Structures are given as C-alpha cells and as structure tokens.
Measured scan of single mutants.
Amino acid sequence: RERTTFTRAQLDVLEALFAKTRYPDIFMREEVALKINLPESRVQVWFKNRRAKCRQ
C-alpha cells in the first residue's frame, strides 16, 4: 500500500473533527470517511497518529 497523502481539504475536515472529539466512534469515522473520500481505516489511523502527536 502506498503512503496516503491527505489533501488540505481532507486535513481541514479531520482537524475540525479532532477539535470536537479526539475519539470519534465508528459511525462518526464512517461519515467523515465518506465525506472526504477516504477509507474508514485511514481515518482511524489518522486519529491514532494525531493523538500520538498531541502527547509529544
């Protein structure tokens, strides 16, 4: 699998959701994945990595 490159628009949507909740449930992830045209698994990993970035 190639490394996913997120567009600015995708990142804006993800960051906005992250500001609301750091742990979105499966339904929220599915919804945002459809909206920004990414698989739900990529959204899940993005959140995992974003939380890790926050902890540093």
Rank of each mutant, 00 (worst) to 15 (best):
N49C: 07
N37I: 00
A19N: 14
R3N: 15
A16M: 08
R3A: 12
A33V: 00
E40T: 06
A19Q: 10
R22I: 10
I26V: 10
R8M: 11
Q44G: 13
A9G: 07
L17R: 02
T5G: 11
F27L: 13
N37K: 12
F6W: 10
E30A: 10
V32N: 03
N37T: 05
T7Q: 15
V13E: 10
D25T: 11
V32W: 00
V32S: 01
V13Q: 08
L14G: 03
R51P: 01
V13K: 07
P24I: 01
W46E: 00
E40Y: 09
R50P: 00
F27W: 10
R3G: 14
C54K: 07
A9Y: 10
Q56D: 12
S41F: 09
V13G: 06
F18Q: 02
Q44W: 07
T7V: 04
Q10V: 00
R22L: 07
V43R: 00
P39I: 05
Y23A: 03
K20R: 13
A52P: 01
V45H: 14
Q44F: 12
F27G: 14
R3L: 12
K53S: 12
D12S: 07
A9L: 08
L11Q: 15
I36F: 09
L11S: 06
Q56K: 06
Q10T: 04
R29Y: 07
D25G: 04
V43I: 13
R55S: 13
K20I: 05
R50S: 09
R42Q: 15
F27T: 15
L34S: 12
E30N: 13
E40C: 06
Q10A: 00
F18D: 00
V43M: 03
I36S: 05
T5Y: 07
L34F: 08
A52M: 11
I26G: 09
D12A: 06
T21Y: 09
R55P: 11
V13P: 05
L38T: 11
F27D: 11
R29K: 02
L14R: 02
Q10P: 01
L38C: 15
S41P: 12
N49I: 05
I26S: 12
N37G: 14
R22C: 07
Q10Y: 01
R42F: 09
V32F: 04
E40W: 03
F27S: 14
K53D: 15
Q44R: 08
T4P: 07
F18N: 02
P24Y: 02
F18G: 01
V32G: 00
V32C: 15
I36R: 01
R55C: 14
D25P: 03
T4D: 13
